[in-house]
Amino acid sequence: MKNTLTPLLVLALLAPTTALAADWEERLSVALTQGWQTQPDTWTRLEAQQPRATRAGHLRFMGPEFNSEAALPLALDRLAHGEEPEPVRAALADVVGRFSADWGDALVELLAEEPAGSVRAVLVLGLRGVAADEAEAGFTIALRDSHAEVRQVAALTVARRADGAVVAPALVDSLSDPSAAVRAAAAQSLGVVGDAQATDALLPLLSDADASVRLRALSALDRLDRSALSAPQLRTLSADADSRVARRASKLLAQ
């Protein structure tokens, strides 16, 4: 089971998208049929394309032809229905996520159904560009994902949306995530989309055991409401064992 959501909750979250799910499958079928009929040579070429190793070692599709909206149906089809290895599917998720503006319903469903956490962690970046209701549904799923990297990237991606504040309450919940990377990411995004409630929730993280969480909480509070940071707190943090935390706190103290 890839998701920590209870089956009932999954059903509830997917309920608004269930009808759409059929839509995207139908739209995909139409798009594929059209593509094969109108550009058989191009699609034959695209279908055969394989990702290549990035400098970091993971796979990515790099050519202009595959990285295009026109090629999305093929990428989506390979991701949703293919049986390719996980690294290839992560590369497909990268393309799908970037061109998912009109395919948010598919993205949300794949986030719920995709078995590999590494693939979902790439896919979730696509929530940056989908419609508001689809983004909210997607974040709700992703922020509760069993895979910490999915929750982390989801938390980071919230801040990339102009309407990210809608998801701020869920981000506040993520501040108590067992993963430090997720707590740090949630704090980072709350610094952009948060409000007074977020400020209150961020303050305890200044004493989090993990330095990256303390750092991100400090920068978020600096953005949201610098007055919430007391001089004693800053003095304590300016002596933090982590040099980045100490540096940030010292700069704030000096201001």
Partner: peptide, 16 residues
Amino acid sequence: NDAGLRALNEDLWDDY
């Protein structure tokens, strides 16, 4: 207009 991108880059500057 991507506030999250701006914040990310500010943090990268300040912290790294």
